[in-house]
């Protein structure tokens, strides 16, 4: 079986408040997945349920084909680095790494040491005295060096600057190349990670909104700009996500594949066509003020 995670009808409610609504998906081995969505959309809740840190209200989850709950042989294969991961205050970074070597069977001590150097972490310093960014770096080191067949990073870079984030992406891709595994990156910094993702899941308001190849998402929408009247003529009969006008000019984000027919149609009208980034598209799709949302939600 090649499925790393299978989630069926997953729901989580607190009293009358439902935070995850009937979510279904399955993930294949050896890919980098993006779990995207706004803060509070339910991403962390889903990941906590996958790793049995939180109990679903209903639904079924299989990890490597088995129930992960209290299942040591499967738990060992999973490393989940969450933004709010707790480390005992009195531990030094060295203590955390030392323990991780017994928590994770694939732990690579040498690789961990090299990452510690990359992120300039003071191994002798106590967790209590680390800055937010250093704490995030500790999580990244643990996540990468654990070499767990399923590695999940949930907003792993709070407090990290652009340089440190870039080091993270570099190391992640390098190590993924030499030690392929399934990786889930959950983040709201979509622009930064979109090119690294092979497949994308978007969760909005507790519901799975998009589940498709990253390349396909890039082709789901484009923008047209030009004189208002011509833009309107172009968008007639097309699904439009947004339309902004300034003076006599307008710009609209239009759903659909940019094939040669639409391209030449826009050209004839003298409209400028531009790509819409994954981040822009997801922002528009998950913007709750957008009236089009219901129509796009498939």
């Amino acid at each position: 079986m090649n499925k790393v995670i299978e989630v069926n009808h997953l729901t989580k409610s607190y009293g009358h408040h439902t935070v995850v609504h009937d979510v279904n998906f399955s993930l294949e081995a050896g890919k980098i997945y993006g779990l995207l969505g706004r803060n509070g959309a339910g991403k962390t809740t889903v990941m906590k349920m996958i790793t049995a840190q939180l109990f679903p209200t209903s639904g079924e989850i299989k990890v490597f084909g088995e129930n992960l709950y209290e299942n040591r042989s499967v738990l060992n294969q999973v490393c989940f680095i969450k933004e709010s991961q707790k480390y005992p205050d009195i531990f030094r970074i060295a203590d955390v790494l030392d323990l991780c070597s017994s928590f994770f069977p694939n732990w690579d001590r040498e690789y961990a040491d090299s990452l510690i150097e990359d992120f300039r972490l003071p191994v002798k310093r106590r967790i209590k005295k680390l800055s937010r960014g250093m704490l995030s770096s500790v999580g990244i080191v643990v996540g990468l060096a654990s070499r767990a067949p399923l590695t999940i990073f949930d907003e792993p870079y709070l407090g990290l600057d652009a340089v440190a984030r870039s080091i993270f992406y570099d190391r992640l891709l390098e190590d993924y190349g030499t030690h392929p595994r399934t990786i889930i990156l959950s983040t709201h910094l979509i622009d930064e990670v979109s090119k690294m993702l092979e497949h994308v899941l978007v969760i909005d308001d507790g519901r799975l909104m998009i589940n498709e190849e990253a390349e396909a998402i890039r082709r789901r929408a484009f923008s047209v700009a030009g004189p208002s009247k011509k833009v309107d003529a172009f968008t007639v009969g097309r699904e439009t996500l947004s339309r902004e006008a300034i003076g006599g000019m307008a710009q609209a984000i239009v759903m659909g594949d940019l094939n040669s027919k639409t391209r030449s149609q826009a050209k004839e009208l003298g409209l400028e066509i531009n790509p819409v980034s994954m981040q822009q598209l997801i922002i528009h799709l998950t913007n709750h003020n957008s009236q089009r949302k219901a129509a796009i939600n498939q």
């Binding site: 890919k31 980098i32 870039s166 992406y169 570099d170 891709l173 390098e174 993924y176 190349g177 030499t178 090119k195 690294m196 993702l197 092979e198 990253a214 390349e215």
Partner: peptide
């Protein structure tokens, strides 16, 4: 260059 080298250099997915 190898697929992994391209992936690291451009920060893109190796499969891509």
């Amino acid at each position: 260059p190898s697929t992994n080298q391209f992936a690291s250099f451009y920060q893109i997915n190796p499969a891509t």
